[in-house]
């Protein structure tokens, strides 16, 4: 391999890592995907610490199970699938913890998008506040819809890629995205009046 690693495609890098156990190839892939995965997992889970742990775990799983990757699939969909599964597990664990926890704190469970009451319409145009409200609303959408909305509208993946990651049919992916968006629009109706 004479080209610099940064110019090599993902699939070639993982092949190199699988065949020759080249740690540089692995590091390059980690560098490429750590931020997109952090973004995806953070939007899905809504907790930065847990998100860092999940992405670390994703990379460890990638390192340990490199041979389970098959070259006919895209590397990006494979790594997103691992991260998505770990994020879903984390959400399930949290739900269980919430059910059995004696000292439930409702503030932790439900994002308070009702904060809008304290913001005047002029202030809502302020980007930071607006983003904060959207983020909180996104966490209120059901995980099955949230995942696909994040992958499509935030991560900018194609329907086919999302279909591969989630294991759903493309049609199902599209309808779930629309439902997710509609729910989000409903939650944010004070921002998007029409």
């Amino acid at each position: 391999m004479n080209r610099p690693l940064s110019e090599i495609k993902d699939e070639e890098l993982i092949k190199e890592f699988q065949d020759n156990n080249t740690l540089e190839a692995y590091e390059t892939l980690v560098r490429r995907y750590k931020d997109p995965l952090m973004n995806f997992v953070y939007r899905f889970v809504g907790d930065k610490d847990a998100c860092t742990d999940i992405v670390q775990e994703t990379m460890i799983k990638f390192y340990l199970n490199k041979d389970s990757y098959k070259s006919f699939a895209k590397f990006s969909t494979w790594i997103y699938t691992i991260a998505g599964n770990l994020a879903k597990n984390e959400l399930k664990r949290r739900r269980r913890r919430t059910i059995f926890s004696i000292s439930d704190n409702d503030d932790e469970k439900t994002p308070q998008i009702e904060d809008k009451m304290f913001h005047s319409p002029e202030k809502l145009t302020d980007g930071e506040i607006r983003n904060e409200i959207i983020e909180k609303a996104l966490l209120k959408v059901k995980p099955v819809y949230r995942e696909v909305v994040i992958l499509r509208d935030i991560q900018d993946l194609s329907y086919e890629e999302i279909s591969e990651i989630t294991g759903l049919a493309v049609g199902t992916v599209k309808s779930r995205i629309n439902r997710g968006r509609a729910h989000l629009q409903k939650l944010l109706k004070h921002i998007y009046k029409d």
Binding site: D35, M38, N39, T52, R130, N131, I134, V149, I154
Partner: peptide, 15 residues
């Protein structure tokens, strides 16, 4: 508009 806002959400970076 919603899609545009979602795309413009701040990107989270790894520590």
């Amino acid at each position: 508009e919603l899609i545009k806002d979602l795309k413009n959400l701040p990107k989270i970076q790894a520590p």
